[in-house]
Design a protein around this nucleic acid. Sequence first.
DNA 1: TAGGCCATGTAACCGGTTACATGATTAG
DNA 2: CTAATCATGTAACCGGTTACATGGCCTA
Lengths: 182, 182
Amino acid sequence: MNVRTLILAILNFCEASGYEIKKMSSEGSFSYFVDISYGSIYPTLARLEAEGMVAGRVESHAGKPDRRIYSITERGRAELVRGLSQPPQKDIFKSEFLLQAINAPLVGPDVMAAALAARIANLEAEIAMLDGIIADCDHPATLWVANYGKRIMTTDLHYLKAHRNDLVAIAGQAAGAPQAAE
Amino acid sequence: MNVRTLILAILNFCEASGYEIKKMSSEGSFSYFVDISYGSIYPTLARLEAEGMVAGRVESHAGKPDRRIYSITERGRAELVRGLSQPPQKDIFKSEFLLQAINAPLVGPDVMAAALAARIANLEAEIAMLDGIIADCDHPATLWVANYGKRIMTTDLHYLKAHRNDLVAIAGQAAGAPQAAE
DNA sequence: TAGGCCATGTAACCGGTTACATGATTAG
DNA sequence: CTAATCATGTAACCGGTTACATGGCCTA
């Protein structure tokens, strides 16, 4: 899942500028599995154009900076299919929250409670975003993914709310006596 | 969640060699959120030792290569607490499967069905691993995380099984007619 | 008039992986 | 005899981020 394929996938939905791609990847319907930086978007876009995978055109709007709008080409779409068709590698899931949770006794109940609260808030925000997609969007595949994501996040949220106190209690177990000495 | 903190976290559970750390991170109870490579483990371990965060000793077993066993020091534990205590950044979730799913019409029903099957198999394997941890382990925080993970993965699995056909159908919608022309 | 948003781009850096080098022991 | 497992380590590479440079327009 390199930036290259990701950008092609986004451009296969709609043409966009580098700036818009950034926004889609950090706020829009792609945000729940990526967040690309400008520093990788613009060079990749330039390279994709040089390879004929995307076509760029400049659009001028009065009172706004010029925008380079890119759209995917036939070659780009073929490349995207190639990229998507090879068996997907395992999902990568990196959770600092889980690392904290596994070390609950070490971080203590206060930090743990704060982390739980942050995660719950985060999940609620993300579910709200998915609700927005589910309401607005009529693209079947996107809807399928949004509903799938919502289902999992909802379960996650319920579980956290039901068991947060257990984890805080575990974190409190060793409070003040920070593990055996060296 | 850099390798540094991760290694300290692992060593806070038990002392281990670089080789064992690798195994824990790619098979053991840490594997469901990381997989570190030797190329980052050994240099990091050396650096941590130079900084006094971990202490290494050489152990010889007849008929086996020498092993450098590392254990965390007080300083290392303090460093770990510091690393864990700052508010965790958002979970990173990168899923090639989801990227395929969102582009289901493009990849076609066969590839989509294969991806679904792979993901289902993967989830089943991971749930089995979690069951192992839940049965064996008596560390409360680890158990909490394992049960949490199991709950989510189980929901995930059920949802996938119940809705896989829908996604394959969506992927079949555009089969043979690969999108509008340029 | 200060700060935020729009908009594009580059250069330096960095965290990490891949691939390689080495070598003994054990299981098939 | 071959392959796998145990075990440590290095060097080259690479994908990506951070921080910087630039500048006009709009809002508070």
